[in-house]
Design a protein around this nucleic acid. Sequence first.
DNA 1: ATCTCCTATATAGATAACCTATATAGGAGG
DNA 2: CCTCCTATATAGGTTATCTATATAGGAGAT
Lengths: 115, 115
Amino acid sequence: MELDKSLVSGSMGLLVMKLLEEKDMYGYQMIEELKKRSDDTFHLKAGSLYPLLHGLEEKGCVCAYEQDAVTGKPRRYYHLTEQGHRTLQEKEASWNQYTRAVNLVLKGGACCVAG
Amino acid sequence: MELDKSLVSGSMGLLVMKLLEEKDMYGYQMIEELKKRSDDTFHLKAGSLYPLLHGLEEKGCVCAYEQDAVTGKPRRYYHLTEQGHRTLQEKEASWNQYTRAVNLVLKGGACCVAG
DNA sequence: ATCTCCTATATAGATAACCTATATAGGAGG
DNA sequence: CCTCCTATATAGGTTATCTATATAGGAGAT
């Protein structure tokens, strides 16, 4: 089943920061890691990721540094800042609140479920 | 906490159709019902709902009929079609797959969770 | 009587988050 | 050489939501 892209919006920033919470990573690596960890559900495109990373950098959530690889092009690693940790916590709480609300509606409403 | 709107995208069609699965409703009623069932989380705006309903009608997921109220303007009721039922099932499955994948990433990846 | 509020539907234009397509560039293998 | 895999980047398009605005009936207050 093809994943409905219209359901996929706004959470990529959250997921990328979640990856960086564990360790510094470079863009291409995040795409591979996200695919693997999501059980082959997320196929984030390079054209989506790089603008997203630049946006996170502008907001001060991540900072970047170049590092040469053994072969090939030098890699641009990203590191989660203090600000990034805070934003991640907020986004994670927001995600939990949002999915809870959707599931309330899907399962019959707030009347039937204890807070 | 204000809900991060960037996490809220694409699922409103699913939620609206879920409401209509139970019974026919008119637009304004859906806004109120959605607010109530989501435990006051979703404040769907009229300017978002009506174009959404027109879109669902174009796709053949819902059909509409006018019905006078005791007072005030006549109401435009929406009914979920056969096509709408099928689309709803697909969207619900898609939502479950998507949230599962996000939670896999948030909780440490596919390696740690069975199927 | 007119003002404001609640019900009820509708459209225009803006914003944000993705997408596809394309460009650049190093290294490996046929 | 040509193609593929790694690696980063930008341009332009689509879609879903938002805000703002318009219309319109009925209720209650000044």
